[in-house]
Design a protein around this nucleic acid. Structure first.
Lengths: 264, 264
DNA sequence: CCCTCAAATAAATACTATCTTTAACTTAAT
DNA sequence: ATTAAGTTAAAGATAGTATTTATTTGAGGG
């Protein structure tokens, strides 16, 4: 029967998946497919090609394609019914909080307003979550915050990848420590967006010592059960992030290339 | 993408989330499987049975099972690697905002703290989003708010399903109108949770006229570009929701469940 | 006795082929 | 013109087999 597999799955290796899991074959198809939707190649509201055509387009098997599409259905990108075909859902119903979708969307030239909106939301959410954490966090949650803080201190400088990672861990740990499942979920869902944002802004920052001091202040305020101080400290932290983002975007505007070689 | 371009979305189907329908065979398997995980039959951190055993357990084909599992991978419920097997991820990494997961989780005896946390989050998010809407919403977004309001008025009474639906539409429309993609996403993601909450609380409320008046006040404040009033109005609205929730939970405690005789 | 590296192996991953169900479209009869 | 029945295209579901991957295990060397 199916014995001779005469189709070579040529070069499905370009996964280069920086994020955690699934650097497998299917994820390549998924990435490509999501990219095609996000980029508008398959426009919102349009019916996309029949299965057979997609099979050819992505050079994968039926099973793999269906698994891929199931993932996309799960994120509200597409919706398919027998005979009617599969249609791309309106953008408003996409789950942009899904790491895969978000990452793909951020892979393309990013509108600056994306980052401003994220910051705006953080200004609302994080101070509130920090206040809650100061009021009612348990010990184990507090320990995670402390761990993240130590990792930041050890990172040595703000330009390193370690700093970005532990910075993310710090903020996520606080959201978790709030004890409110909605805030905690927000932290998980928004990982990809935060990390991208952190990478962008931290690069543009100078003051390692000051940043460390501010983070420590927030942690201490939570530990000492001082909600007002904790909330204020987080506000200050995000104000710093806002300042950094301004600087980063300004620098980007000044030198749009940034493809490696610096011209001193 | 930052535009979060919300097209006409003609039809106004109000299809509740991505996994709304799909009453196919697979969804039965998915529901059952998610239920098994949420209920703890497959405990967090444990390795679940091999594919063959699951095939037998759920009585579906391999393809169907794999599509099901792919959906669950997408929501962070499970994670599988060759040879190592499939393990249930820690609860903290589950995407509770997914309608399917949330619905299943809420199908079981619900901890009251679930609703309190949701309300707590709304108290933080919605006033802020409403303020933004008053500052910068465009006409089409405003129109959606008005449409939802009209639907509420027409619903006639607070106990009807129509009221719950349009109440949800009202709040979702405001989150959309904020122009911030994070808030808008929150609205989409939290649909299921909000709807369940609405259904619970609206039942316990008496004051239809007052509720309508308060909603109108918020809408007018947005339309008139008065951020302070809009924000205050939304706070009042959520305060009412808090009051209703207290009443609903109290009533529930007094007469636990509608299924079967109780001897207090 | 412990460490390293390579072969065996168990589990998920991927592919092909075929049958079933659904619902949009077509056609025919009222 | 409207409705009802039949046709058919597309997705949905199943079966069987081959391929990858990473854990185990076992042999050889330190």
């Amino acid at each position: 029967m199916a014995g001779m597999n005469d189709r070579a799955q040529s070069g499905a290796k370009l996964t280069a998946g920086p994020s955690a899991q699934t650097r497998r074959v299917m994820s390549g198809c998924l990435r490509e497919f999501v990219e095609a939707v996000v980029s508008g190649e398959f426009a919102e509201g349009s019916t996309l090609p029949v299965e057979a055509a997609l099979l050819d387009r992505f050079a994968v098997s039926r099973t793999t394609l269906r698994e891929t599409m199931q993932y996309m259905v799960a994120q509200g990108l597409i919706r398919s019914r027998p005979r009617a075909g599969t249609v791309v859902q309106p953008r408003a119903s996409w789950n942009m909080l899904d790491p895969m979708v978000l990452e793909t969307a951020m892979g393309r030239p990013q509108d600056a307003s994306f980052y401003w909106a994220l910051l705006e939301a953080r200004e609302v959410l994080e101070p509130a979550a920090t206040r809650l954490a100061a009021q009612s966090s348990d010990n184990s949650a507090l320990m995670k915050v402390a761990e993240a803080f130590d990792a930041m201190a050890e990172a040595g400088g703000r330009e390193s990848e370690d700093w970005s990672d532990s910075d993310l861990a710090f903020h996520t740990a606080i959201l978790q420590a709030s004890g409110n499942w909605v805030f905690a979920q927000f932290g998980i869902a928004i990982r990809a967006a935060l990390l991208t944002s952190f990478r962008k802004t931290n690069r543009a920052s100078q003051s390692f010592d000051e940043a460390i001091a501010m983070h420590r202040a927030v942690m201490e305020a939570i530990r000492m059960r001082r909600p007002d101080d904790a909330e204020a400290g987080m506000r200050a932290l995000i104000a710093l992030a806002r300042h950094d983002l301004e600087a980063a975007l300004a620098a980007e505007a000044a030198a749009p290339a940034a493809l490696g070689k610096e011209t001193p």
